[in-house]
Write a protein that binds this DNA or RNA. Structure first.
Lengths: 165, 165
DNA sequence: TCATTCATGTAAGTGGTTACATGATTCA
DNA sequence: TGAATCATGTAACCACTTACATGAATGA
């Protein structure tokens, strides 16, 4: 596929847990080509090119996937805001939670639409079970976010004075 | 507090959703001092200094907390590995899920220990309800991770052939 | 006395985004 | 004909980590 198509595939298929920018994709594709891990072919239009994975590239991909996942530094701005909720005030915090709940509910609908689409897919049969477990992970965490938000909104309403000390 | 103490506080109190390195903390403290948002005082030992938030600094902090949270690029290596599970193989994937479950279970115990500690806390009363909702969020997502892992392990066992296509 | 913790800071490097510049192709 | 999409790439910049260098204080 082309660099452009790589980006579209990452956005559309891995969008829930991965992202890459053009500024990352094009130089990486060149570097992989220099290492002999992808091959560059002429594309359908002038100046465009299509890349394909070489056997070397595929085996490197597998060995990278086998390596333990290096943890990225945590930075959750939403939780940070709630931790300093006293400084932000209970009303602003409550609103943040309302928003988070709405986002989660919308997200859950998206997951379910994607699940339906993947389930009805007749190609990529060998990938389906794996894709479905990643979707399931998304559904679980999103449902947990909704349940937490409801519980938290309840607290804001029933124990409002605690948040005003 | 000192830069060193700032780091310890971030590690111990915000560790579940935030992290900062010394290479970030010391230059930032100097920059904040130059902006008049923190004040530098002599510490107890030679060469050490203690910083305190000025009124300007506190109001900037609040205005930063009020700003919408700029989303960080998603990069979840665990989900990536499962998405490419077909390339990694069902056994390696299953092991990843077993590990994830174990980590989550351990994490849940940590949350519950911290909850007990915060609940018995007699200082910082005004922060307590906010801190508890962040802990609750951690508990919810961690329990969801455990439930997802159990469900997924079940799938690996009951529908093993689907993962071998 | 010696390991650990407290303490400060810098330099090199990495990994990444954003914005920009450019232009062909498709299709309404 | 003009908007949207396909397509490639670079340059400037930013946030951040890691490793390094240094040393005082504490306490077993």
């Amino acid at each position: 596929m082309s660099g452009y198509a790589v980006r579209a595939a990452i956005r559309d298929q891995l969008g829930f847990f991965w992202s890459e920018s053009f500024g990352q994709i094009y130089p990486t594709l060149s570097a992989l080509q220099a290492r002999g891990e992808v091959e560059k072919h002429d594309g359908s239009r002038p100046g465009s090119s299509l890349y394909s994975l070489t056997p070397t590239g595929r085996s490197r991909m597998v060995s990278l996937l086998e390596q333990p996942d290096s943890p990225t530094p945590r930075r959750d701005g939403f939780m940070l805001r709630l931790f300093f909720g006293r400084s932000l005030g209970p009303d602003a915090c409550r609103e943040l939670v309302v928003h988070a709940r709405a986002n989660a509910a919308q997200q859950l609908a998206v997951y379910q639409a994607i699940r339906a689409q993947v389930e009805s897919e007749t190609d990529y049969l060998e990938h389906k079970p794996y894709w479905l477990i990643t979707i399931s992970a998304g559904e679980h965490t999103t449902r947990a976010a909704i349940a937490w938000a409801d519980e938290t909104l309840e607290k804001f309403d029933s124990a409002r004075t605690d948040f005003l000390l």
